[in-house]
């Protein structure tokens, strides 16, 4: 099946339309939020929080309420726990992250074992984009609109507190609250991404498109647009491969974005490995003469 067939199928099947719409939203919001996550040196934290929502999601599932509430509660508790442990002992930040998120993840697995079917666990962990329900789609849209609005409204504050937190603090920005607000946003993004890429691979959608954009530009605003675009392309083509070859959507989406990262890594005009090597060689040749 080629891409044309995929587009035909898109017109035919409503489930595929919903899947595409949700994936694109996820690509965009993960791309945007990911920029701030990597620039604040929180890639590992993103991994931790996305995994740590598992018990919250499981409990919400059992209680029959929206994933959203449980996820935000356990996500934020984990973020606070990590901060508390690393600030009050000789335990370093990365150690605290390793301890807290694996514990939360383990709790989540045990809770899910008590649920009816293991298929649910599989879908939460790895996503099942073709089974997106209308309610999931609206939730993703809602989270997407909220995240974009927050970034637009507080762009200035996010920029200063990320680039120079000391300056931000000196003129009265509440760095701590910005940090925790970002943690809340992170858990929301994770919830929005549950169906598309699943808990395990959310972090890839947060980091890879943003890192790709980071190699391509020297402006934060441009980086955010590029990252959202790269996330979107990864979602569309990932969904295509997933649908065509009957593969897990999370895995295909992540691999497409990893492929784009590799392209940027080698061929980026300013940072690419290839140009750097060519330039170095040219310099050497000129010196030989």
């Amino acid at each position: 099946m080629n891409f044309i067939d995929f587009i035909e199928a898109l017109f035919q099947y409503q489930f595929l339309q919903k899947a595409l719409f949700t994936s694109i939203m996820v690509g965009i919001i993960c791309g945007i939020v990911g920029c701030f996550i990597i620039l604040r040196g929180m890639a590992l934290m993103g991994d931790a929080i996305s995994h740590a929502v598992l018990p919250g999601v499981a409990i919400s599932y059992m209680l029959g309420i929206s994933f959203f509430f449980g996820a935000v509660i356990t996500g934020v508790l984990t973020a606070i726990g990590i901060g508390y442990v690393s600030q009050n002992s000789r335990i370093k930040h990365d150690m605290a992250i390793g301890i807290m998120f694996t514990s939360m993840f383990a709790v989540g697995i045990i809770i899910i074992t008590f649920m009816k079917s293991s298929a649910d666990l599989y879908h939460i962990l790895f996503g099942n984009v073709l089974a997106v329900r209308m309610s999931d789609m609206w939730m993703t849209l809602g989270i997407g609109v909220l995240v974009i609005a927050l970034v637009v409204l507080f762009y200035k504050e996010l920029l200063v507190s990320t680039f120079d937190p000391t300056m931000a603090q000196s003129y009265g920005l509440p760095n701590k609250w910005i940090h925790y607000a970002l943690m809340v946003v992170l858990t929301m993004v994770t919830v929005a991404s549950l169906q598309t890429v699943g808990i395990v691979l959310v972090v890839a959608m947060l980091i890879t498109p943003a890192a790709t954009a980071y190699l391509l530009t020297n402006r934060l605003s441009v980086m955010i647009y590029l990252s959202a675009l790269i996330g979107t392309i990864a979602s569309v083509f990932g969904l295509y491969f997933s649908f065509t070859y009957n593969l897990a959507s999370g895995a295909t989406i992540v691999l497409v974005s990893a492929f784009m990262f590799a392209l940027a890594f080698f061929f980026s005009p300013s940072q690419g490995l290839m140009w750097k090597a060519m330039k170095a060689r040219k310099n050497r040749v000129e010196l030989m003469r």
């Binding site: 620039l39 040196g41 920029l159 990320t162 680039f163 120079d164 000391t166 300056m167 000196s170 003129y171 009265g172 980071y214 530009t217 020297n218 402006r219 934060l220 441009v222 980086m223």
Partner: peptide
């Protein structure tokens, strides 16, 4: 607060930041 300009130590800044 807004009338005090603070210039941090050079080591406190991430010089790879896209700015």
């Amino acid at each position: 607060k807004t009338n005090i300009a603070y210039v941090p130590q050079r080591s406190d800044i991430d010089w790879d930041f896209p700015i």
